[in-house]
Amino acid sequence: MNWRRLNNLLHRDIGYVAVGLTLAYAISGLAVNHKADWNPNYRIEKTAGQIEPIGARDRETVTAEALRKLQLTEPPRSAFRPDPETIRLFYEHATYSIDLPSGAVVVESSRPRPVLYEFNQLHLNTPKGAWTIIADAYAVALIVLSLTGMFVLKGRHGISGRGAWLVGAGVLVPVMYWFAFVGTP
C-alpha cells in the first residue's frame, strides 16, 4: 500500500468516525456562540399568577398556606425566604416565588433543551473524566483529518495547485482577524 492510499483510507475512515462528534460540536458551537441572545441550555418560562395574600409569619406555616392556596399537593424540595415578604418554593423543574403581602406569584419553569443541552455539556467538557480523553482523541482526529485532507488529491486540484491557495486562505482568516480586530493583549 503506497503512502497516498494509506493517507486516503485514514482520511475516509477517521472522517466516518468523526461525523457524529463533528455534528455535535458544530451544532453546539452555533448555539453557544450566541448565548448573549438566548440561553442555549435551558428553555426558561415565567408565568404570573395571583393568590390570596398570606399573612402567616413563620416559614412552615407560610409554606403550608402557600401550598394550599396554590392547590399544590406535592411538597416542594425546599422553601426559602430571601426577605420577610417573599417565599420561594422549589420543585424539580419549577420555582414558585410568592410576594406574601400581595399574593402575586411568579412561576419560573426551566427545562433542558432536548439534544442541545447534551451537545453543549459534551462540547464544554462538563462531564470531565473519561470524556476528556474522548474529546482529546477527537481533537487529534481533527488534526489528522486536516493533514490527510491536504493530500487526498494530487495534481492541479491537490496541495500543489488550488489546494495551496485554499489552505493559505483558510490560515489567513484567523491570522488577519486577530491582527485586525483583536490585537496583542
Binding site: 435551558y42 420543585y91 426551566s110
Partner: peptide
C-alpha cells in the same frame, strides 16, 4: 467558569 457547571435542576436540593 467551566470548572464546574451546576445544572438548574438541582435547585431546591441540599
Amino acid at each position: 467558569d467551566g470548572v464546574i457547571v451546576f445544572p438548574l435542576s438541582i435547585k431546591g436540593r441540599t
